[in-house]
Nucleic acid binder design. Structure first.
Lengths: 127, 127
DNA sequence: TGTTGACTTAGAGTGTGCTCGAACACCTAA
DNA sequence: TTAGGTGTTCGAGCACACTCTAAGTCAACA
């Protein structure tokens, strides 16, 4: 698969795929006879996993650490496990924070809703 | 309260407070006789709310829209309500996404844990 | 055979959200 | 009265994660 198709299938742009390769997030791709990158479909699994890490707010620097450990093979399993566990804890904490924020938002929205419903001219002076 | 104390109490830096004022996220502060900003404690409530919006990933551009509506007074209640409702939906969707990612992370971590526990030399070749 | 379209590289540019520096003003305590 | 601490403005600089440009190569098709 060439970079254009991988772009389509992964949702990343070809530019981004080259950028990820340049910084080490994606392994250097095989090349065909004309020097074009030629990808194996298995790269999609890795890209999808990177997407999960990205969605959960992991910075590229940390993804790079994970990618580097992966290159070391099974010896680095323990370190990778720890890295993911730490990240999971961060994500869990973030979800908890978001839920608290959602409650604040709900309350705020309810305030707007009730003041419009009652049409009592009560000002909503808070934030 | 001067900017330094507000910085301490809000958790923002004085630089950031001036920046927020410059872009319109904070109202222009009153000044004391020597031209220094002099804040009322009520600003802390607004800053805290901005923090919630920020935590939930709202871009500054959208916070500015909300801040601008707020300046219009109660006439804009409906628009502010809609803005917050839309944002709430985005945040809810994001939480759902994060929970799906957490499941993937958990599965991955469990994979590492089981392969180290069994010491079966089984490689973890996935992402 | 020429043109189209996808690819290549290196490097510059962009958007977001701060963060810092320089140079100066002002109050307070020693 | 002088030193320190806190404040002021304006503008530059930075970190992150892309995103785009320019100039060129290559294979396939009309």
């Amino acid at each position: 698969m060439k970079i254009g198709e991988l772009a389509k299938r992964s949702g990343l742009s070809a530019h981004t795929i080259r950028y990820y390769e340049k910084i080490g997030l994606l392994p250097g791709a095989d090349r065909d006879q004309s020097g074009h990158r030629d990808y194996d479909a298995s790269i999609l699994i890795w890209i999808e996993f990177l997407g999960r890490l990205k969605t959960t707010g992991m910075p590229i620097s940390q993804m790079l650490r994970y990618a580097a450990l992966r290159k070391l093979g099974p010896e680095s399993d323990g370190q990778r496990q720890r890295l993911l566990e730490e990240h999971r804890d961060v994500v869990r904490a973030h979800v908890t924070e978001l839920r608290a924020c959602l409650e604040v938002l709900d309350a705020k929205i309810a305030g707007y809703a009730s003041s419009s419903e009652k049409q009592d001219g009560k000002h909503n002076d808070g934030p």
